[in-house]
């Protein structure tokens, strides 16, 4: 394993939880502090490889320009009943959430 030791603070973890829209307990915070740091330490090994000038790969397919033609018949349309069927909070074909200011 790599020798670097990443330190994540409680506020780092809380910030990440906020970004990720997750609520976490105090017990989870201390657990994640070390677990995330352990993973980050491991992946530091990438630094051993010289990537100067190397192109990035975000896709392995080599595909480009995959489009559909506007106005194509819609075979996937859902009715509003189907659309909201799995929702626990719905009203008259709408999804319902707590009032947003």
């Amino acid at each position: 394993m790599s020798s670097t030791h990443t330190k994540l603070s409680k506020s780092d973890i809380l910030h990440l939880a906020k970004l990720a829209n997750l609520s976490i307990s105090d017990a989870e915070i201390s657990k994640y502090e070390s677990q995330l740091a352990e993973t980050i330490d491991y992946v530091e090994n990438m630094k051993e490889l010289d990537t100067k000038g190397v192109a990035v790969t975000s896709q392995t397919t080599d595909l480009t320009n995959i489009f559909f033609d506007d106005g194509l018949v819609n075979n996937r349309a859902l009715t509003s009943e189907e659309a909201v069927a799995n929702s626990k909070t719905k009203q008259n074909g709408y999804f319902k959430v707590k009032k947003i200011m």
């Binding site: 990438m46 990537t51 190397v54 990035v56 392995t60």
Partner: peptide
């Protein structure tokens, strides 16, 4: 440091 680097190393592996 992370995502971009990983994408570059990915290129090397390919």
């Amino acid at each position: 440091a992370f995502y971009k680097k990983a994408q570059q190393v990915r290129t090397l592996i390919i």
